[in-house]
Design a protein around this nucleic acid. Structure first.
Length: 337
DNA sequence: CTAGGGTTAG
């Protein structure tokens, strides 16, 4: 790292890099710290690199501080930082992350002409996403046709955004219609498209169709991912079917997909409901092993259940494991003596 | 170099 990019505030930690500092502050939700860095950074060259400014704009979005993102975008010329369509797109995303959907149209009307930036398919995909999020699905669908007239071809991301919104608002026949449109326009569906459809089926309780569709995804040569498996597990949890849920969990692990926090949060309470505390114990151990945080209350429920079923040794083992792992769960054995 | 799925004891 160049000396000029050192940030005095973080130098003593042995990390002089601004980007690392900013990431760390964002993770800690310490957004005023980010502003401090920008202020400091204005006198140094890093911010003149467009990617770094773009990162800050996105982080402001994450912090739901769109006005700050916009301010930085406007100040970039004074900081000798060139703006491109990438910067514009970052600003759009920041706007969406801040849920300021009303601002999107304004940005499109104002900026491209002024800055001689040509919006591209990514820009329009973001606009479509904003419309979907704002509940204007019809306008979003129209926009897909409008951009074609501007010479921009919708791609699979465009379609997935719209498919998701259509299934989400239960407009199934229009969703099916979009699949046909995709075929005629040679837009090839990907795993994301299929996962969206899988969720669509589950949303209307088409269990057997969902299972069948899952098989079709595999037959098409796709390797189901954590989204696919978690969708199937959600379906089983909704039905209270532990055996099926367990089956999908096992498939998930066998196929090298790592269960995530939601997987454990769905499965462990389900196992407890069914009084299958040995499976619940197994899941807790796996979560600890994979360093996935599980709510303390859920772990405690497993321990209580094990004790109730006289599995004292297992309960003790879990308490010990949970206490000594990274999360230092505070658990107790409900033994009366 | 960007953009698009979801779940949870919240």
């Amino acid at each position: 790292m160049k000396e000029s990019s050192k940030c005095p505030k973080f130098r003593r930690e042995g990390r002089g890099d601004y980007e690392l500092a900013v990431h760390r502050l964002a993770r800690a939700k310490h957004f005023s710290g980010i502003e401090e860095i920008i202020e400091h950074q204005k006198h140094y060259p890093d911010i003149r690199h467009e990617p770094f400014a773009r990162l800050l704009i996105l982080l402001y979005g994450k912090a739901r501080m769109f006005d700050h993102a916009r301010k930085l975008f406007d100040e970039m010329p004074q900081l000798n930082c060139q703006r491109s369509v990438f910067t514009f797109n970052a600003l759009l995303e920041s706007c969406i992350r801040s849920e300021r959907y009303d601002k999107i149209g304004e940005l499109f009307r104002e900026l491209p002409a002024k800055l001689e930036i040509e919006p591209n398919v990514v820009s329009y995909n973001l606009a479509i996403k904003a419309l979907c999020k704002a509940g204007s699905l019809d306008s979003a669908l129209l926009l897909m046709d409008v951009i074609e007239k501007h010479g921009i071809k919708p791609n699979i991301v465009t379609c997935n955004t719209l498919l998701n919104a259509l299934y989400g608002s239960q407009r199934f026949s229009e969703a099916e219609n979009l699949w046909i449109v995709m075929e005629t326009r040679n837009i090839v569906p990907d795993l994301c498209s299929y996962n969206i459809r899988l969720r669509g089926l589950i949303k209307v309780n088409e269990v057997s169709k969902a299972i069948q569709f899952f098989e079709e995804i595999v037959k098409k040569g796709f390797k189901p991912d954590k989204f696919s498996y978690n969708t199937m597990i959600t379906m089983c949890v909704d039905e209270g079917n532990l055996e099926e849920a367990k089956m999908w969990y096992q498939k998930m692990v066998q196929n090298g997909c790592l269960p995530v926090d939601a997987t454990f949060h769905m499965l462990i309470p389900l196992a407890c409901d069914a009084k299958k505390f040995e499976f619940a114990l197994h899941l807790c151990k796996k979560a600890i092993e994979a360093q996935v945080l599980v709510y303390r209350e859920i772990m405690q429920r497993v321990i209580d259940g094990l004790v109730e079923h006289s599995e004292i040794e297992n309960a003790k083992e879990l308490v010990k494991l949970a206490k000594s792992c990274n999360f230092h769960y505070e658990l107790w054995l409900p033994l009366h003596s």
